[in-house]
Nucleic acid binder design. Structure first.
Lengths: 337, 337
DNA sequence: GTGAAAGCGCTAACAC
DNA sequence: GTGTTAGCGCTTTCAC
């Protein structure tokens, strides 16, 4: 337990400097109410003795740990990694430390972590949860500390999101403008706002263009390795007449590529493909993948900025949702008919 | 500052339960010296009042925060992400929280974070530093708390690494066994053990097979977007006769692919390619990339396990280096001559 | 089996 | 300008 921190305290400094601990504390906190001379003397001793302030003690009296918890479902996901980078950037500039809580999509672990953060007296929480609405624990936490959500929505909680419906709409609309009529949608089978929004966008684009929605063209499955591949297989068995595929994300689009290549179908000559997320993958694929991009780092920045604001403000303000724009990034995977 | 935690304390529990705070503390810590009856009563009230222990106060008296700092140069790098996942898995099972410290390859930020971790009374540190030997701050920290390094080496600090020299050796040796003689090495221009080790392996494989080392075939550059592409260009201008390229990592190998494809050169018919790291990319490329893999998650697990061990042991034990094995993963990017 | 009291390292009234 | 003191929430002797 005791990891042996045989450390110098302000008392030691005070003794050696022949001042009171208050004075040392004042020096440490840059209070103006210290004479230049005393300050110099104390600073010198602090330096000499290698004093390191104890944030635990500080946090205890200040009732603030200068720390926030970051709850993420999968740190391995490059989308998250970019957002996290944005968050980290902002927070480190405020001197706020970040607890990394990787839930691995496990609800129990998410609950465990939220509780842990509460115990560690985190000043706030940023949550990305791919699965939706585990209300209970979050509900408890949000009455205690500010929470900002990214790409998920909880009642009464601030949220940073992207215009996902519009992103999907733009993609599908672009396909339609290119002359495609039989457009499939490969997606995941979860009850999550992001997933729902993209589907809405897909359907709306079709409807707005007078194209009937064909349920056969919507393939939804659970997360699985390589599932884009299998979905494409299923799709082509059901509906070989499609000319374009809109994939929920670039990862799925990759599976589409792999299956089509295997089958000797060419992209975009035989089938056009659009992905979502503008991951590194999109530029790497051959042909390069047309996709929908989000400002990932900015999402992180916004989330962090908003959280800091909430921590500094008093509580009970109206929660807001900040929607960041998506952009259709046209590359080489779509053919004009 | 004060992020308003108007929280229930053990004193509140004690009052309500008509016991002393000592008893509440005992219940909380599962001490056997509490009667079953009292325990039940106290637990009930703890539950009712929604008591959440204050880890700050606990840490202050226990002189241990149950927290470690994770210093990483780039969280966006998928290699790191996998290792971090391993770390997180182990540590969360011990109930240890992890501070995420992303340095963005900045030395100042690394120093800042190490200091911050010392202030927060982290019980230990895991450091991945791509750049080498920032001794001063680390040196200071290692006298205070245990440190485990991943893929970097500091004097007197435990280290988890992979057999990089052997990994590179195996790759190049494989190329030679496939009949290649003019083998280029694309690498980075930094003074880092990993980079050095892979280069050593490249050279040793050539020498062991009686092939003279041709400095023209070694291209080294700083990190840059797309630098694999430019390195290949430079290489082919200097030495168009090469038949194989060994890239420092898969990322660089991707650049090789892109340039060769652009030039109409086929892989592996015209030029064979081997990467390093076995990233997702390797399977995605066409042809799939032969590469050298490391047990990334296991690296994280080992690092975390070792750190926990060091934290629980007393100090001043002999630092060890754990070398995890690399494996050549043969795919389709190498041709037998 | 239970409690009183000291103290972890620090900040913040409040006095001088 | 500086110091005294109380107290943040908890664990831990030491009594009883």
């Amino acid at each position: 337990m005791d990891s042996s921190y045989p450390r110098v305290t302000i008392t030691d400094i005070a003794n050696k400097a022949n001042v009171s601990i208050t004075t040392v504390s004042r020096v440490l906190n840059g209070s103006p109410a210290v004479s230049k001379k005393t300050r110099k003397k104390v600073e010198k001793i602090i330096e000499e003795m290698g004093y390191i302030p104890n944030a635990l003690a500080r946090g205890l009296v200040n009732n603030s740990s200068n720390t926030i918890g970051l709850i993420v479902s999968d740190i391995t996901n490059s989308f998250f990694a970019d957002v996290i980078q944005g968050i980290e950037n902002v927070l480190s500039s405020y001197g706020i430390s970040v607890f990394l809580c990787n839930t691995g999509y496990s609800r129990e672990k998410e609950d465990m972590y939220i509780l842990q953060m509460l115990e560690k007296r985190a000043d706030g929480l940023i949550i990305f949860s791919t699965y939706a609405n585990h209300e209970d624990t979050v509900k408890k936490a949000k009455d205690i500390i500010p929470i900002v959500t990214v790409q998920s929505s909880f009642d009464g909680v601030d949220c940073i999101n992207t215009t996902d419906e519009k992103g999907a709409y733009d993609a599908v609309n672009y396909l339609i403008k290119c002359g495609h009529k039989h457009i499939a949608f490969l997606t995941y089978d979860y009850d999550n706002t992001t997933i729902l929004d993209r589907k809405k966008g897909y359907i709306k684009a079709l409807e707005d263009n007078g194209i009937p929605v064909d349920e056969n063209l919507i393939i939804a499955s659970k997360f699985k390795p390589n599932c884009g591949y299998h979905m494409t297989q299923e799709l082509l068995e059901k509906a070989p007449y499609i000319t374009a595929i809109f994939a929920y994300n670039d990862q799925l689009a990759l599976g589409v590529y792999l299956y089509l290549q295997k089958k000797g179908l060419r992209i975009p000559e035989d089938i056009s493909v659009i992905g979502y997320d503008n991951t590194e993958l999109a530029t790497l694929l051959n042909p390069s993948l047309t996709t929908v991009g989000q400002p990932r780092k900015e999402m992180g920045i916004s989330a962090a900025e908003l959280l800091v604001k909430r921590i500094r403000e008093q509580k009970s303000i109206i929660p807001q949702t900040i929607l960041l724009p998506t952009t259709l990034i046209v590359r080489d995977s779509v053919r004009k008919l």
